[in-house]
Design a protein around this nucleic acid. Structure first.
Lengths: 168, 168
DNA sequence: CTGAACTTTCAAAATATATTGAAAAAATAA
DNA sequence: TTATTTTTTCAATATATTTTGAAAGTTCAG
């Protein structure tokens, strides 16, 4: 397979993939393009390679930056901005986990804690089922939270790092 | 907080939550409703409680069944079908992990393996970056795959079960 | 069989999400 | 300063996804 063809397929599949995970297709494609670009590239490069508008590139790049997956590069003597993606894929995964945890898991746990305080008799079947279900979802959420923390810290910590190696 | 109010909020938040994860809002809401319903309920119950059409309920229930999260219950002497969700939340999580792994991670790994065979000189910077990136994403994917397998099997296996307890 | 009760399908409509592109804003050069 | 280049914004438009509801299909009691 030729490089250009493979690159194209990687970008397009990565976009389709992102969609399934609630990530904007274009954002995923821009990220894919930056991941396989050895050097920083400009908005115009992205517009051209993905055939999308300037505004679209701009908004999605901003989003990627807010996820700390992409950074702006200033080349001295150059007026235009360049962009570059974090290339260490483990760092990328860690960063995504961190962000999703913060943006989604944490608010969910907060909600569940509120819902635990429902009035009423636990003898009532409906009430009992609700209270028990909220409690077990919360428990699962807390476990996931801790497990993800361990994953994030795995590189920094010898012991958990060694444990995680068993999974490899 | 009153039960009805709490239930309503749980269902609506669960739906919003699902959306962020690429899950149809209504499907998530139906699942939430079934999770907090102690007894099996009918299509009409769901239509009424969530104010949605019959067709919508039918399609999303089918989907939930295909994920093995919900089952059809035949009540003898009753003509209508009842539905009930798996209530063991650990099993629910396991099932979702299994399915997403099968539907998403496996195809992605397959794609990456294909893309590894790109022609061209590894001395070329573009080619090298592409090949290296595909290889490291694949490696990450394989690790995630194994880690998820361990998570799925954790209940069945004393040793890994004990290890996972450390994360709780 | 027949017809009532219930389920499924799917084209059309509604809704939600993403994209464009041109105008405004910002940055820098001259 | 003013002109020029580049970035950002956002209303309008386009696209994708979800939902409806009525018709077709199925099941089963009588």
């Amino acid at each position: 397979m030729k490089l250009s063809e493979a690159k194209q397929q990687f970008i397009s599949s990565w976009g389709a993939f992102g969609t399934q995970w609630g990530i904007n297709r274009t954002m995923a494609q821009i990220h894919a393009l930056l991941l396989v670009s050895p050097d920083p590239i400009t908005q115009d490069d992205i517009m051209e390679q993905l055939s999308i508008s300037r505004g679209n590139v701009n908004m999605n790049i901003r989003d990627l930056i807010s996820w700390s997956l992409v950074e702006r590069i200033i080349v001295s003597g150059e007026r235009r901005e360049y962009f570059s993606a974090e290339k260490d894929i483990w760092k990328v995964a860690t960063q995504i986990i961190k962000e999703r945890k913060k943006r989604e898991l944490d608010p969910m746990l907060k909600l569940l804690s509120q819902l635990e305080n429902v009035d009423g008799d636990k003898k009532d079947k409906e009430t009992k089922q609700f209270v028990d279900m909220i409690a077990s979802i919360k428990k699962l959420g807390l476990s996931a939270d801790k497990m993800l923390d361990v994953t994030i810290k795995a590189e920094e910590n010898w012991f958990t790092g060694s444990i995680l190696k068993m999974f490899k």
